[in-house]
Design a protein around this nucleic acid. Structure first.
Lengths: 125, 125
DNA sequence: GGGCTGTCTTGACATTTCTCGAATCAGAGG
DNA sequence: CCTCTGATTCGAGAAATGTCAAGACAGCCC
């Protein structure tokens, strides 16, 4: 994915309130769908969903790659690839501190995705 | 996807409260991730995300395939394939009435996915 | 029954994705 | 400077995905 595409996605995901009503309230335009789909796609792999959960639920709000990799029966490069996908989708951010790299979730983005999926609770239900 | 897998996924997505805390609260196990990932994956394509939005926001709660297909520059079989993906992910359900087939969203499932992504709003934010 | 319309399934092909090993990069420490 | 460890990038191969054309199926109407 190009850097331009990544920043467009990030801009869309961190934008203010008005841009993103729940998809059940109003049909989203093709351009918006194209910007949002990569985030859902990133969560659409079991390994990445687990990674996302480990990162988002990490005590202190961050977790070292060295703690993520051994949790899977996958090679280091493969985990790194999945982390890059999550990064490019705007779901996490990375920071290097010395030898180690730490990942943090971006709660704003998660909340935006959650609100897109939210629906009115039916009165009769 | 096998029918067994589909019904496992449906069972997981429509289960009661206790099964699915937000992924930011507790790390989800591999088996749960495997059951949930297909739903996010289904939303991870721009065409399907638009379809989902059109279905979920349809007045009357349902919409005919004949109204979905012309909204895209794609062949009928392709739209049908995407609708099947959404169906197998448990996000929508279909009903044939005479010549036409109508699709409805499954709000329960959407809400479950939304709650998985929900996060505590930081006190200081 | 026969034809018509709308939808789905099948088969095929190009593209993308997932995975790994090898090589590379970034820092720490001798 | 050299080496060692942790993480990423590169290159390649197998598997999955998106798309279409052709065919099959379901239900209407004459």
């Amino acid at each position: 994915m190009s850097k331009q595409a990544v920043s467009r996605i990030l801009a869309a995901l961190t934008a203010g309130q008005p841009c993103c009503a729940p998809i059940s309230e109003r049909r989203i335009p093709a351009e918006v769908a194209a910007l949002l789909a990569p985030a859902f796609k990133a969560l659409g792999d079991p390994v990445r969903l687990q990674l996302m959960s480990m990162i988002a639920s990490a005590p202190g709000g961050e977790i070292c790659v060295c703690d993520l990799t051994p949790a899977f029966a996958l090679s280091g490069p493969t985990i790194s690839h999945h982390l890059r996908t999550l990064r490019e989708a705007g779901l996490v951010e990375a920071e290097r501190r010395g030898t180690w790299v730490y990942y943090r979730a971006r709660p704003q983005v998660m909340r935006r995705l959650a609100s897109l999926l939210s629906t009115e609770v039916a009165a009769g239900a």
